[in-house]
């Protein structure tokens, strides 16, 4: 459902010139699977997912989402994904129902089906009591529920969650994670980025450790633990990241030495 091949995205930085935020990244995600993108802040997770959601254009490489190329058919890709991140806010001056309705219409869902779908979603996410509350007056948890409802209103086959739990309290985060798990059980193809190890261990079927724009290793949580001979995924993560930083600094000092 998602196939990413040698995806690269360069930005121009005033100080450093062109910088690759995502560098030759490749992976694949199948339906009914949660693929975790594990990395520290600034690792390139958001950039990568923004490319998959067609908001950014890749510098090179290819990405197919739900069978469509993200560069050639951005509209088709967007129609087939649900995307949620810390940056996808909800409108202050709209009620929960209006918000979900608005996006449902943008996705071109027929009016009858849309109303049924909204009722269904509001039921499962237990948000009937905030149906007519304005975004302005909602708590963070309510807002997050509306965001999830907005993400799944058109029942997309592919779902992309970019750090959906960041800044949430434990209870709300738990609700979000439960919703994501339910969606996997419905057979959705899900990509989930985070820097929280617990979430990876609990949720992800497979995980990729990403650092400085590059994927360091991919596999199941158990597989990675075994392969790197570490007690848990957290240690695997630190080991992988340290090895990169070490080689880099030694390369740098080596350069200094030779010059």
């Amino acid at each position: 459902m998602i196939r990413v091949q040698d995806l690269t995205k360069e930005f121009t930085d005033l100080k450093r010139g062109p910088v690759a935020a995502v560098n030759r990244v490749s992976f694949e995600v199948k339906p009914g699977e949660i693929f975790g993108l594990l990395g520290p802040n600034g690792a390139g997770k958001t950039t990568c997912l923004r490319i998959l959601s067609t908001v950014l254009k890749p510098t090179s490489g290819q990405a197919l989402v739900a069978g469509y190329d993200v560069v050639r058919f951005p509209e088709a890709v967007r129609a087939n994904i649900g995307f949620m991140s810390g940056n996808t806010g909800i409108y202050d001056r709209m009620t929960a129902c209006e918000m979900v309705e608005y996006y449902g219409r943008l996705y071109g869902i027929e009016e009858d089906r849309l109303q049924d779908r909204i009722d269904e979603i509001f039921e499962t996410l237990q948000m009937n009591e905030i149906r007519d509350v304005l975004g302005l007056k909602m708590s963070t948890g309510m807002k997050q529920k509306v965001s999830i409802a907005r993400t799944i209103v058109h029942d997309p086959p592919v779902l992309i969650f970019d750090e959906p739990t960041s800044g949430l309290d434990v209870l709300v985060a738990r609700n979000v994670l439960d919703a994501v798990a339910r969606l996997r059980d419905e057979g959705k193809c899900i990509i989930f980025s985070t820097h929280i190890m617990r979430e990876v261990e609990k949720l992800c079927d497979r995980v990729a450790v990403i650092h400085k724009g590059e994927i360091l290793d991919t596999g199941t949580v158990e597989g990675l633990v075994e392969k790197h001979n570490q007690p848990d995924i957290e240690e695997v993560f630190f080991k992988l990241i340290q090895s990169v930083d070490l080689t880099e600094s030694s390369a740098k000092s080596g350069m200094e030495f030779t010059s």
């Binding site: 509209e75 967007r78 994904i81 996808t88 996705y107």
Partner: peptide, 14 residues
């Protein structure tokens, strides 16, 4: 500023 722009960008609207 309010963070709703990206929400709109990922909708099917061009």
């Amino acid at each position: 500023e309010r963070g709703t722009m990206e929400t709109l960008l990922i909708s099917p609207a061009t």
